[in-house]
Design a protein around this nucleic acid. Sequence first.
DNA 1: CTAAAATACTAGCACGTGCTAGTATTTTCT
DNA 2: AGAAAATACTAGCACGTGCTAGTATTTTAG
Lengths: 333, 333
Amino acid sequence: MKKNRATMADVAKVAGVSRQLVGFVFQGKSGFSPEAAARVHKAAQQLGYRPNLAAQSLRRDSTKIIGVVFDPRESSPLEIIQSLYKVAANLGYEVILSAIGDDRDEDEAIHELIGYRCEGLILIASRLAEAKLVGLATEIPFISIGRQLDVSIADSVSSDGAMGLGLVVDHLAVLGHSDIAYINATTMLDADSRLKGFVDSATRHKLNHRIIDVASDYTEESGAAAAQLLLASASLPTAVACSNDQQALGLISALRVAGISVPDQVSVVGYDDSRVARFSFMSLTTVHQDAVELAEIALNRLIERISKPTLAAQASLTSVSLVQRKSVVAKSL
Amino acid sequence: MKKNRATMADVAKVAGVSRQLVGFVFQGKSGFSPEAAARVHKAAQQLGYRPNLAAQSLRRDSTKIIGVVFDPRESSPLEIIQSLYKVAANLGYEVILSAIGDDRDEDEAIHELIGYRCEGLILIASRLAEAKLVGLATEIPFISIGRQLDVSIADSVSSDGAMGLGLVVDHLAVLGHSDIAYINATTMLDADSRLKGFVDSATRHKLNHRIIDVASDYTEESGAAAAQLLLASASLPTAVACSNDQQALGLISALRVAGISVPDQVSVVGYDDSRVARFSFMSLTTVHQDAVELAEIALNRLIERISKPTLAAQASLTSVSLVQRKSVVAKSL
DNA sequence: CTAAAATACTAGCACGTGCTAGTATTTTCT
DNA sequence: AGAAAATACTAGCACGTGCTAGTATTTTAG
């Protein structure tokens, strides 16, 4: 038997107080003297005591745990996870991650989190069928990040893709580009709003524009495929807007392999402002979404829903901004 | 109070049996009739019962939980996580992930996992100071993946970097390359063994070789920096070996921006066989490491150590192989 | 100076499950 | 046919903590 890790009782014994007092000290409640608290802290330190989170979760009225489902194969969720930890800690919640992958689907990841009695779930870039989401909503409060849901299903938060692509097209128009393209990753989540933002804005500016539809598991590959389509067309556009940064990486790489210079011959814009965009060989002008803002809205909304389950669902959009780097230049005459 | 989730007692009531029998059925133990089991399963289904993992962990002699610390900002850990889930499930263990990030250091991630009373930890690509690792070893069994440790500290598993770069240089030599370079990411974990493998093998083949030292937070950036150094040198090597695939991406991209063709003018080899290597515009010849093998060795070793804490530590190396794609061609005469 | 109130604690049950020890009932053995 | 053994269950304690309800001791109020 190796139950050697210290418990509250061990700490209490060493500190010469009752077990309950140790609990009060660790919960930061009132009702103890500073001297006693000091003795408790010293004893805890000495024994290497850590509260048993399983026991806390079991005993508490609310477990104070939020479950997060994510796909490590995609890059955008990863930036959000960091923000979720930070924001959750401020709100007094623990976060438990559950990854999906080739051998582990979302159902399995969700069931594990329910096993830990999470009070609510955050699904990042979920591809779960709508019917399953509706069923899940009857089981546990959740919110979707990066996939906008109909308000009849559940809460969701996304960056404002329509506005983001509006900013992109505005920028291109100001720089004199009048023949532009949008690379539409058809299987990407929230693809529709980004596409709509592009089309609406291009139409408003009366720009000559085309849509290149591509579908691929690897997003970078979709960019490369789009590059081939563009190269095979009668003439290249002077600027290309992409669905996301990874796609832009594939597009730019494939164009350069073909001897096309970016940005001299073709300007390229991304979306997400992920780490890819900051590479020196990319220096990608892109739409920035604030991961902290996304995490804050998601968690606050989720916690609100946990306490008021009857709340009407809403689809929130976070603000976006254009980060100008060097992948876009004014149209050469 | 919202303690509405079903417990074993609820299931037992509906099935018309004792709570203990429900436990037996879910643990797959013997000692119950098929009819009773069927009633239990039906009741559980109907109530949407899921075992409370916190309660299990609390009550069990061993929690059957393995904690995994990883950094979502790096890409190689992510492929391993998927394998860990799979292998752990086969061995009857749960996995809890704990991410580190800008606002969350390894200490914090580890303490959370200890809070869940993990029986052991897996540190992926850990950068914890040796002194801290030594201290940690007295607290809890752990194994390091992707960072080789001195056996006086703790167990570790890495891919065999020396052998991997041996394979790379052999391959280049066979193809007639006699002027080769290695891009050495000095701050990368396990950099030394890869460097040594390159130097030893190049020396053995009597090849003209040079080492380009680069240091960077973003690995891709180190490749781009190396490209600038190569371009500034008197002559380009005919082949370049990189410390990892992401670095190769940066190197190739920067070379192409400068008008150098890969592989026609310079062949490039990566390391890791990550998803980057499979992009069509990369088609990177690279050293493959088997994530499943890594996960299996790590978990088996860790579980062995959990049951026998006095076991001597060892530094394991997994097998590697060369995946030939299109970024390497024979030296043109 | 006594009563009330605040302070500084302690007692004990409960959370949902695993585990050891029981108790009927049926089956097998000689 | 009677005893032993296997089968199919049930009882009850325990894990480490949170929470409600206490009990001394000190401080404040009138």
